[in-house]
Amino acid sequence: METAELTQEELFQQRIDADQRIEPKDWMPDAYRKTLIRQISQHAHSEIVGMLPEGNWITRAPSLKRKSILLAKVQDEAGHGLYLYSAAETLGASRDQMLADLHAGKAKYSSIFNYPTLSWADIGCVGWLVDGAAILNQVPLCRTSFGPYARAMVRVCKEESFHQRQGFEIMQTLCEGAPEQKAMAQEALNRWWWPTLMMFGPKDDESPNTARSMQWRIKRFTNDELRQKFVDMMVPQAEFLGLTVPDLALQWNETKQGYDFGEVNWEEFWQVVNGNGLCNHDRLQARVDAWEEGAWVREAALAHAEKRRQRQEPIHKSGPTRKAELPQD
């Protein structure tokens, strides 16, 4: 048989090509493991840091309904971060190490969260545009080759669609309101449009990892393909709202059945990635503060658990234990 001569790496690629999922204990190339740990942990960090710009508006949401919705959404983002951290841990990454890398500035998170949320319309834009872009990125990840990542993304995508709809509803309400409200919506779109296009990452010819990630079926579409899809999807929605997309080059292209659009400001993109965005410092500081100020809680909970263990207090009696149902001799 030929297969006897294949290397482990070739066998691995065969499984990928046959669209088989890779599970945590399966053999995998070191670079596959490293790429996934980097990507999944960055994704998790993005969910966690992403709570900050929206959390900023929980106390100022314009009604109790909006406040409840926003609270539920921010809680979802925390949940998404936790699903993803636990997926990364199946690859041997430690939670504390991932957090230490974030806090030391070694690990990245999505640059979009380094922009400030200045008005209530920004919360609309975050849901409508930012979560809309996130969904485009995340839907193909439901079929990514690493099982735990794919399963986490299925759960995330199910929850994410409410996020986008509530954002659109905020925008729609503002656009149907007073002229000042509509102006507020337009002003927010002006600020969020370009940073959202940057969420898909550098252009394909400047994205060195794309080819390998596609070969391993971690990624299923290139950055530029997703960016194009996003523009084609969002322009009609902006038109419905009566808002103007802030791009003079935007134009329907009949031949490609899609929009032509202007060039992203890549200088700004790299500035923000490299730490010089408006909120990079504040976001990281908020995470470090939360971690450090929570240290005593983590220690106390462990000490309490240990004390109970020594006293042999039963912690909880439900669950799979069926001792009570067994015949007592």
Binding site: A72, Q75, D76, G79, L82, Y83, S86, A87, E89, T90, R95, P148, R151, A152, E159, R298, A301, L302, H304, A305, R308, R309, I315, H316, G319, P320
Partner: peptide, 25 residues
């Protein structure tokens, strides 16, 4: 019962509480 994922907790009671918040919203 079906496996849904994992989480960190100091003890079983906290694990059940956190599981409720993370996996059954």
């Amino acid at each position: 019962h079906k496996h849904v994922g994992s989480l960190h907790a100091a003890d079983a009671a906290m694990a059940i509480q956190n599981a409720r918040d993370v996996y059954t919203r």
